[in-house]
Write a protein that binds this DNA or RNA. Structure first.
Lengths: 187, 187
DNA sequence: CTTACTATTAGTAATAGGTACTAAATGCAA
DNA sequence: TTGCATTTAGTACCTATTACTAATAGTAAG
């Protein structure tokens, strides 16, 4: 960036912004961005309390590791505890604060949805199934820490279309129900 | 961890499993786990093609950085490009490989859903809204790299119940539609 | 028992991306 | 010009490694 020279305050403000945008920048790269020496960058980080590259990367990795494994990382959200291919299955998802709205501690809908959808896909055992149509209903809010038990059942199958119902419970209480039509596209 | 000594093959198999479970383990820690020298661990990693700690951490961080910001990290999935509180809004979500099934490159349903749901919540501007009921339909598969444009419209409001329709497009083609009933629980 | 071979361990130099510190040089304003 | 903040330079040290050479241990076959 052709920035010639900025006053200290301004540079530090931008440094912080840049690192928030991209925590993977090395001091070397920053030094070139701001056209100052590497020592100045280090002084700046010290004054701003910004840790070194490796610590920043580690932090990003740690914060997200468990979270991502549960949503989007693994193909299946939740733990599969029972499965009869083509018939039914049960999965358990332990919820935590990271899945909830900060203010209310209520679990965000898409986590419940993701568990149900991925369970539905697991029971029909077609690697590349798509959710075609869903009719879903959230019946009761779920709080962080509660254990979601999702039960799926294949109710009908026509060619490559699979009709799966999923009911999710916290204890005895039903919190979600979804009707999935999955289209398998195995060649 | 009281494992005394394992044959090479077995050790390498477990090493791999351990690192999949926890990529944050150093060679030093692994050496203690398996009761061998640090050189043996390094040979093992070399043979198995497993990169060093920092590379592993970096990989975890990189894979998840954008992903987590978009799902579960931020309250809003996708970028809000237009918003009229209580009326309508538009959000754009750039998809990538990390959101897709590896084999088919088709975007997983819950990402599309999450974008729509969070846009629906954004337009009614109630911090702690719950998705009460949804009737949703995936109309066409979305491929990694395509840009999802979601348009939301508040169609009705009764007390603390908000009825929002969301239509998602890739270009001119509609790929998703969802009807959300959001219940705001502002006191 | 010796040979052969694999598996393991030891040790050295070099690397990236730093920390922590001391000291010197520069900029600028009163 | 004096004074102080800012910037730069330079050194030693750090961690978790790679890449490499070399020595040692363990075991099985002849």
């Amino acid at each position: 960036m052709g920035v010639k020279r900025l006053p200290k305050k301004e540079r530090q403000k931008r440094l912080k912004l840049e690192l928030e945008k991209d925590p993977f920048l090395t001091d070397e790269e920053l030094m070139q961005m701001f056209n100052v020496s590497i020592q100045t960058i280090r002084l700046d980080r010290l004054e701003l309390g910004i840790p070194e590259l490796r610590q920043r990367i580690k932090k990003v990795a740690e914060q997200n590791y468990s979270k991502v494994r549960s949503i989007g990382g693994a193909e299946i959200v939740g733990e599969l505890v029972d499965l009869n291919l083509g018939e039914n299955g049960i999965s358990i998802l332990e919820t935590d604060k990271s899945m909830a709205f900060k203010k209310t501690n209520v679990i965000k809908g898409h986590h419940i949805f993701a568990q149900a959808e991925s369970l539905a896909m697991a029971v029909i055992d077609a690697d590349a199934a798509l959710t075609g149509v869903s009719n879903i209903k959230y019946k009761n809010p779920v709080k962080a820490g509660q254990k979601l038990i999702a039960k799926a059942e294949v109710v009908r199958r026509r060619n490559n279309k699979h009709f799966v119902h999923v009911f999710t419970y916290v204890g005895q209480e039903q919190v979600f129900r979804g009707k999935f039509i999955l289209v398998s596209i195995d060649d």
